[in-house]
């Protein structure tokens, strides 16, 4: 496996980790009916999901 491919796979893994943690955070907040839950949903979950998506997109664009 070339170094480029290995770097690409590593970026996918980072993106996947961020997306999984972000999605889990979003899911947990929905079972918590408090005003702060929406802030956690957007501030933590949303941020992680967007970061994961951006890393994934950058990885495929640079591929």
């Amino acid at each position: 496996m070339s170094e480029t491919t290995s770097r690409l796979h590593r970026k996918f893994k980072v993106a996947a980790s961020l997306l999984i943690i972000g999605l889990l955070t979003e899911a947990v907040t929905l079972y918590w009916s408090k005003p702060t839950s929406f802030l956690v949903f957007i501030g933590v979950g949303g941020f992680l999901v967007v970061s994961g998506i951006v890393i994934y997109l950058l990885a495929i664009v640079n591929e």
Partner: peptide, 23 residues
């Protein structure tokens, strides 16, 4: 990969935000 890494997370976030607004 595009569906899993891009489409589905966006759909999930929009869906979740709408549930939050409803709550």
């Amino acid at each position: 990969a595009f569906i899993a890494f891009f489409i589905m997370p966006i759909v999930a976030t929009v869906f979740g935000a709408s549930i939050h607004l409803d709550h």
